[in-house]
Design a protein around this nucleic acid. Structure first.
Length: 479
RNA sequence: GGCCCGUUCGUCUAUCGGUUAGGACACCAGGUUUUCAACCUGGGAAGAGGGGUUCGACUCCCCUACGGGCUGCCA
């Protein structure tokens, strides 16, 4: 762990355009941590005119499902992370992986091993009992070919037993691991299938990946993987092992923390842009920048800005950031994303007329909502149809006196000009006429117009509703 | 057990040997006000503990504590 960024190989390999990848295993929903890893890769590549690739690590046939693959693609799509080319199936490349294993054999970088799982387990058992290292040392490493049995065998990496392996990591710095801490990992199982540790390396190499940005649970693995690169004479990519995300309590994120899948966040009504912003800021920073656009994130994102300790999810801050993004979103895009949210949340779709009213109301609503459900709630005045049924609090604001005031206000509004300024002036005049403050007038107006006591500004609502609807609702309420 | 990584306000973080340790979210108090939101002003709030190195450590080194990861013919 030393000097960053001085000795960081951040731009190695130097002369190639950046290629990053996201490589999830399809065993469940796209986890929020996975989403952030994908985001970092996407940001890094897109900010440098590079390519961002997607590879599905489906070599575990037991646990991999097509549904999970679909969930990952859907999650990435919602987050707005687009990848270049087709998603690569790791399983489909198994022949290539086996070929590399055989090549390692030919180069003397690997050897055939006939040790059975039972033998290996017995070895570890004994090692544990005697307090020795449980790293397995295969008796076949230097066996005479004359003694080779005629039976299925695994292929093991012939790892150096002395010296050390140095992982130059763009985030963690220089990590040194003694080679006697690493064993001869299996690269090809005795049934001929490759293990992950080999497959990642082969795939990353073949796909031309220059920067491997992934969770720091792979940091130790990087040392082993580097041995494969070295054995094959391939250039090692830039490593960037990022800390994982934890729950609000600091523990590893799990189901009991609530939303862990990316899709959960969509269903809860967080806008994707806010999500990207928040996730980018979790474990990465650019000075004091807190709220920024995708374009800024792409421009600013760099490996040296990534922190080294795990970050906790903070839903309050997520909401705040999302609120800012809703406020600065383009109306049409917002409306479309809102529709996507409603589908994801299982809400009935808006009817054409409602969509229209919502669209008109959006400018006054988006300043006040942090999430889509909140926005929809505040939009209720524009969505409901007459007669507006007041809730209890609103009903009590519509007493006899108030209704009388509304009635007289109706007269003024019939001829009023329907601009914000004119409406404000008309309302102020009406309040003055009855010798009451604006607030006293606004309360029954809210009740009449929205059936609630908490609403957007009254003049704003009137503008959204239009003169006819406004007068009709006032008429309903004034009786 | 062994190895690796981490530890600054409650939370996300800035700081890359010299700062009154900065910002943001949250919180509290005022202000604005037409309810809510927003906004403005102010406030409380931090370097895990212990040793070094240095004129000077949050920053470099070591130890301890705590958290996390790896240690599979899982990924």
């Amino acid at each position: 762990m030393t000097d960053r960024p001085a000795d960081r190989p951040a731009d190695r390999p130097a002369d190639r355009p950046v290629v990053t990848r996201f490589a999830p295993s399809p065993t469940g929903d796209l986890h929020i941590g996975g989403g952030r890893t994908a985001l970092f890769n996407w940001l890094f590549a897109r900010g440098r005119g590079g390519r961002f690739l997607l590879r599905i690590e489906d070599t575990d046939r037991e646990r991999s499902t097509p549904e999970a693959t679909q969930a990952i693609l859907t999650g990435l799509a919602w987050l707005g992370l687009d990848w270049d080319g087709e998603a690569v199936s790791q399983f489909a490349r198994r022949d290539r992986h086996a070929e590399v294993a055989r090549e390692m054999l030919a180069r003397g970088a690997a050897y055939r091993c006939w040790s059975t799982p039972a033998e290996i387990e017995a070895f570890r058992e004994a090692a544990r009992a005697e307090g020795r290292s449980t790293l397995f040392h295969s008796p076949w490493r230097d066996a005479d070919p004359a003694t080779w049995p005629d039976a299925p065998h695994a292929i093991r990496m012939k790892a150096p037993r002395t010296g050390e392996t140095v992982v130059e990591d763009a985030v963690q710095g220089r990590v040194v691991i003694r080679n006697d801490q690493l064993d001869d990992m299996v690269v090809l199982r005795s049934d001929g299938t490759p293990v992950y540790m080999l497959a990642v390396v082969v795939d990353d190499h073949d796909m031309g990946v220059t920067h491997v940005i992934r969770g720091d649970d792979h940091l130790n693995n990087a040392a082993r993987q580097q041995m494969v690169y070295d054995a094959m004479g391939w250039e090692v990519p830039v490593w960037a092992h990022i800390p994982l995300i934890h729950g609000p309590d600091g523990k590893k994120l799990s189901k009991r923390h609530g939303a862990t899948a990316v899709g959960d966040y969509q269903a809860q009504g967080y806008p994707a842009a806010g999500m990207r912003n928040y996730l980018a800021r979790l474990g990465w920073s650019h000075g004091d920048a807190e709220v920024f656009t995708d374009a800024q994130a792409r421009e600013w994102f760099d490996l040296s800005g990534i922190g080294r300790s795990p970050a906790r999810l903070d839903f309050k801050k997520l909401e705040h950031i999302c609120g800012r993004h809703i406020a600065m979103a383009d109306d049409a895009a917002l409306l479309q994303e809102l529709a996507g949210y409603m589908t994801a949340a299982g809400l009935p779709a808006l009817m054409a007329g409602q969509r229209d009213h919502l669209s008109r109301a959006l400018p006054v609503l988006k300043e006040r909502a942090k999430t889509f459900p909140e926005l929809l709630d505040k939009a209720r005045f524009a969505l409901v149809t007459r007669p507006v049924v007041p809730d209890a609090a609103a009903a009590s604001a519509l007493d006899t006196v108030s209704r009388g005031i509304l009635k007289s206000l109706t007269l003024h509004l019939q001829s009023a000009s329907w601009t914000k300024e004119a409406l404000d002036a008309t309302l102020s005049a009406a309040a003055a006429e009855h010798g009451i403050g604006f607030g006293k007038l606004a309360a029954p107006l809210r009740a009449a117009l929205a059936g609630r006591t908490v609403t957007p500004g009254v003049a704003e609502m009137m503008q959204v509703l239009g003169r006819d609807e406004t007068l009709a609702r006032l008429g309903d309420a004034a009786g």
